[in-house]
Design a protein around this nucleic acid. Structure first.
Lengths: 341, 341
DNA sequence: CTGTTAGCGCATTCAA
DNA sequence: TTGAATGCGCTAACAG
């Protein structure tokens, strides 16, 4: 194993001082051309690269940003990451990704780790468990320590920082309205427990749409699914009712896909007997049969916006910096699952 | 913004030297209990944490490992990452993820960046473009510089390092044999261009299975799909033949899902008229209708194995270290797309 | 044109 | 029991 080449070694090679080498490699006018050429050629030959650790320590910044997401096996989050990564790389930043696995404890651990000088800023989407606990002091500490923070998708109102969110209420409204428009009379929602903010908001959009169209809000049609238990069983209950719904709005594509499967078991034809619309335009929505109508969230764009906000804050001389909340609008994507024939 | 607390500041507070504080916090027996208690209490109160950058520089290691993958919006890779992350965290390592986006240039850039002292080791799955170019000097440089490297899934034979691969030939064989077993007489394969090693290997398994069962290998049934052009169009051609196949083996789940969609357009019923089997047990396979039979790759397990190999190499005193290639066997998952009724 | 010094934050060896 | 000195690799202010 070859040892890494350092300024020191180059200096010894030419019997000059370390700073001379440093300057030569930076093409400083202070150094004679002749020496510069020799040093540069030598450094080139050995692929000299300044050690990042040393630079980081000296500059007190690392040119890397941290991302904490609940779960990586999730199309939406990977889209956001792609968006973040694209802009970050463009601006010379690298990206460090950590997973909280929806666990409060792991979220805190990851934050501590990242906050410890490793990154210049952090982008996070809050773990479900954290939302459930309502325990946010780790975010406050982070901000108190002056580390720029951007929250996306699952954000916390009482934490003051830049945020990028989906217009979940509107998305839920659009989806529900679409079902109403195509003639659904009894529309169920498959949503999350209320502590998952995005689920609660989409649910609110759903209820608003119903009210605006003079339709009853029926608690029996609001299924709050708890991931910790058997999801399929909970969804199956929708069809077990005497008068099953003719429209289903699922707050994510997995619930939507499962609903379609269960419908088939009950010999309910999608879309003719039942229209289904999901949320998030992932692979399942595109490739399922029938393909799923859905609410597009534009994750890639969210990621881009999040990193832009973060980099702006990092670059700002933190005097009177103004935080903002960017709302990314949703779009309906019409596919087979809501196209009666 | 509160400044980060450092040894220096604690030292000033108690008017002792930095090294005293350092020792006190490490509970060194050299320091009096009384002073230790006071210093520890103070440090605790201010949430003192040794600065990672400084530690990294001093220890010449960072306790983080780098991952370079072609694409993150891909179920298999996210599974591998999860596996890596789980073990890494368990052993006190963090994970830095970079994407090559299948680009040779970006792969090289990422490697240079990571190799620069930032990580203790690297896990990579090679970009398609790199495989196409056959340009591997960046890997050789890395190894030459003594940075541990593990390749997974898309590996390069001539690079000598630890590797973790799927038994792609066997997977292709199993899938094809399954189609043969259920009575398919004319089996097509949707694969990649040959430079994508995994595609070529699965194709080989396919051909081996055909040969072993005395079935003709028909070049017209071997569709090598070029991602750069319209995938659907290329897949459609399979059904446009006068005598379309009654079995399709797709080397990934996207191709399989598209094939099923196209079949429907041609009024070909899956699975009754056509059986389809994919590769990789992702969300599409599970949630599509009909659900897709597939070859499970055990990405999570691959990730775990890869990081274990890497950490072992990192910890080894690099004398006579032996590299190995771990082969992860595949399993067939039987679902609706190959269950004639 | 080249070198010396100091400092980023920490751990460690050696001296007091 | 405590502290001073050294070094990890690099840059920049300041000397020569």
């Amino acid at each position: 194993m070859k040892q890494k080449i350092t300024l020191k070694k180059i200096a010894k090679e030419f019997e000059v001082s370390i700073s001379t080498v440093s300057k030569a490699l930076k093409d400083s006018h202070e150094i004679s051309n002749e020496l510069k050429e020799k040093i540069k050629a030598f450094a080139d030959y050995y692929h000299y690269k300044p050690n990042s650790l040393a630079l980081n320590l000296r500059n007190q910044k690392t040119k890397t940003i941290g991302i904490i997401i609940p779960e990586i096996v999730h199309h939406f989050f990977t889209k956001v990451i792609s968006g973040i990564e694209y802009i970050a790389n463009e601006k010379g930043y690298n990206v460090m990704i950590c997973m909280s696995n929806e666990s409060y404890e792991k979220e805190v651990l990851n934050m501590d780790m990242l906050a410890n000088g490793i990154v210049d800023g952090i982008i996070v989407s809050v773990a479900k468990e954290t939302e459930e606990k309502g325990e946010y002091s780790h975010f406050k500490d982070l901000i108190y320590n002056g580390i720029p923070l951007v929250m996306f998708d699952r954000v916390i109102d009482e934490i003051i920082c830049n945020k990028v969110i989906t217009n979940d209420i509107d998305g839920g409204y659009l989806a529900t309205k679409h079902l109403i428009n195509i003639g659904c009379k009894k529309i169920a929602i498959l949503t999350t427990p209320d502590y998952v903010t995005v689920g609660a908001l989409r649910n609110q959009g759903y209820q608003n749409a119903l009210s605006d169209h003079n339709m009853q809000i029926n608690e029996d049609l609001i299924i709050k699914i708890d991931d910790k238990h058997d999801i399929e069983k909970q969804i199956k209950k929708v069809f077990a009712q005497k008068n099953p719904p003719d429209g289903i709005f699922a707050v994510n594509e997995i619930y939507a896909a499962i609903a379609m499967k269960k419908a088939k078991n009950y010999n309910i034809n999608v879309p003719n007997d039942l229209s289904v619309i999901g949320f998030t335009d992932g692979l399942i929505s595109q490739y399922s049969t029938p393909s799923l109508s859905t609410v597009a969230q534009h994750g890639y764009h969210m990621g881009q916006k999040a990193i832009e906000l973060l980099l702006t804050e990092i670059d700002s001389q933190d005097t009177d910096y103004q935080y903002e909340t960017t709302i990314i609008e949703t779009d309906l994507i019409f596919r087979e699952s809501t196209s009666k024939v």
